[in-house]
Design a protein around this nucleic acid. Structure first.
Lengths: 376, 376
DNA sequence: CTGAAAGCGCTTACAG
DNA sequence: CTGAAAGCGCTTACAG
């Protein structure tokens, strides 16, 4: 009855046990819900616990061999709507299941990614969701710096084939890290990343790219330009592959398609558009490899007095929430982002399969106002 | 030299100590960087540690009295651009300082909020940032259900005064929780929430509302309507207060201003606009209390064939990234969201002051294309 | 500067 | 079903 007056330290399980008149072991069983306690005793202990405001110490629990109730989530950038939606999906699940989520952003830096995984492992996190593109081998895009000063490259110069661009280099470290993580019993699911021997939710990047290209070709466009994200991302490569495949399938020469790389952001899109249009003023359509870049393209084009889609069409990728509200409303490829997060968490929660699971997402062409037949 | 072949359990500090030929205590000191070790020994231990891939067990550390290197972040909704920006700001800071962030979303449910804090406390988190509006006393908005079936209320019916709407009710529990958290040495900073005796970053809601209203009055608008978010949020109340004050200061009767409440989302905004315009078809301007609602309003109005701002002006609040790209580009009140996150983390990191610190943000009217003089 | 030892708050075999 | 005891991997007084 008498409350400890001075010590503000939270009650421990012993306090609960004492107050309930049972042993530590019994109290523990009652609180964790494990078998071996009579229902009455368990209920009594729990009642006492909640009365005295007992909250188990998760560190002690983890250390004593209990489950770690945290899942890790690594994204490139929380502020980006793509990752925002994914995070929403993941958090929705974790919270309904009583887990806490440790979130990290890497700003698309492979080294930061490794560091984050290690930090998460230090916290003995055994369930981890990594969202965001993997990286292609450094040096493949010789001399092209990510997001700054990226020169214009002919289409043929980028993505010389599917599946050759493994997450190597920093990728080698990453692969080793992942191996050791899973060997130690860790569960990892990635979103939008191949080349890692783990469960994966794979957005339909190549197919989406092809669908988008067919849409533009169908409208009659032949002089197209592409705003690519950082050339070291496999997502960029895959989406480009899809575009190229559909372009080639129409009997056209992909080498005639200029590709400009920039940051996967609004600003990156605007800057890349500037470079693209200066070198190729006669384009009738621009494809951005994600929606923020497309929004940047719209902004630059409109500011430069071009009519969209009257003079030039613009298309994006992802169907971020912003897509339908920009002017003109953006034609894009929809990916089920929040659901992808949910799926990834689901994979992480189930026991590992004998071989990595792959869940391919759907994609859907969403035609809005930003694309139309060329004016010609 | 010989590696343990079968046991995949990670190396412990004893392993490092053994390999380095020092005691556990010395190894610990070397790894934590605490004083009492010669620089050489420390360097040697660290070299050995990194060679054998030692990663300290954070749970053991925390349990043994070391610092918990996690900070908690509670937001209403990660997918919402407002919170996305705040999260970005917070994470940017935590990561540069070597902390990991535990993130939770509450979906604007006060009960969920309490549950999240408790979960965080179970993990012995002592640094916590809570972003998002507080709640006004339940029952103040009698019969008005949040986000669904919210009826049209006369302006005078909402927000009968500043400062009276404390975070009560669930607020009482919250206050108790917060007291016990800080009493136990926890550090908490809130963003956009008053009435809690903790450090706070306070967006200039009332002043922003007043600025926005003056802008519209200055354009000549007199028949205005308001799209309010959930009526139980203090943020909504404060922004309304600002609008009302400026309206009254112009010698006008606030009771003539219809206020419709809905979810703080695009969909909520569209639905609220529908109700508002049906009841008051002659409005010349609509103010939404956040940008997503404003975007919903634009969408509904444009779909209904209204010209914006030709027939009706629309303004928002926050200056979310989307604001400048919608059509027409949105006039709004800019809040420095990412910086607010950074500020909050900064507060949490410093020792508590004798009385709670308050940092007021600036606000800035950003005039874009969605507002213009009334057509009349 | 270095080490032996206690202790953080739990869980889980191991005995009844 | 219940309890006494060992142990999880660290940190930190406490002695040298």
């Amino acid at each position: 009855m008498a409350e400890r007056p001075s010590v503000p330290s939270p009650p421990r399980l012993v306090d609960v046990a004492r107050a309930a008149g049972v042993s530590l072991a019994t109290a523990s069983r009652a609180m964790t819900g494990s078998s071996g306690v009579s229902a009455e005793v368990a209920a009594h202990v729990q009642a006492v616990a909640s009365r005295i405001g007992y909250v188990p110490n998760s560190h002690a629990r983890a250390l004593a061999g209990g489950q770690v109730s945290m899942v890790g989530l690594i994204v490139h950038d929380v502020g980006d709507p793509y990752f925002g939606e994914i995070a929403r999906g993941v958090l929705h699940e974790t919270e309904s299941r009583g887990y806490l989520a440790l979130i990290s952003q890497t700003q698309r830096d492979p080294r930061a990614e490794l560091a984050r995984i290690r930090a998460l492992r230090a916290h003995r996190v055994t369930m981890l969701v990594m969202a965001g593109s993997g990286y292609v081998r450094a040096g493949r895009e010789a001399g092209t710096e990510v997001g700054a000063g990226a020169g214009i490259t002919a289409g043929a110069g980028t993505g010389t084939g599917t599946g050759t661009g493994a997450d190597t280099d920093a990728g080698a470290d990453m692969a080793a890290e992942v191996r050791s993580f899973t060997a130690a019993g860790g569960r990892l699911a990635v979103i939008g990343r191949h080349h890692l021997p783990v469960d994966a939710v794979l957005p339909d990047n190549a197919a989406g790219g092809a669908t988008l290209m067919r849409h533009l070709l169908g409208l009659g466009h032949r002089r197209l330009g592409v705003l690519g994200g950082p050339p070291n991302l496999t997502t960029v490569e895959d989406r480009l592959d899809g575009l190229r495949t559909a372009f080639g399938a129409a009997g056209l020469d992909w080498r005639s398609v200029p590709v400009v790389h920039g940051d996967f952001t609004r600003e990156g899109g605007a800057a890349a558009t500037a470079r693209l249009m200066r070198a190729h003023p006669d384009l009738t359509a621009v494809v951005a490899l994600n929606d923020p870049m497309a929004v940047g393209a719209l902004s630059w084009l409109l500011n430069s007095g071009r009519r969209v889609p009257g003079e030039i069409s613009v298309a994006g990728f992802d169907d971020a929430p912003v897509a339908r509200d920009v002017y003109p409303a953006l034609t894009t490829i929809r990916l089920p982002m929040a659901d992808m997060g949910k799926q990834a968490l689901d994979l992480v929660l189930r026991p590992p399969a004998s071989r990595p699971r792959r869940r391919r997402t759907t994609h859907e062409l969403v035609v809005r106002a930003s694309t139309a037949p060329p004016h010609t």
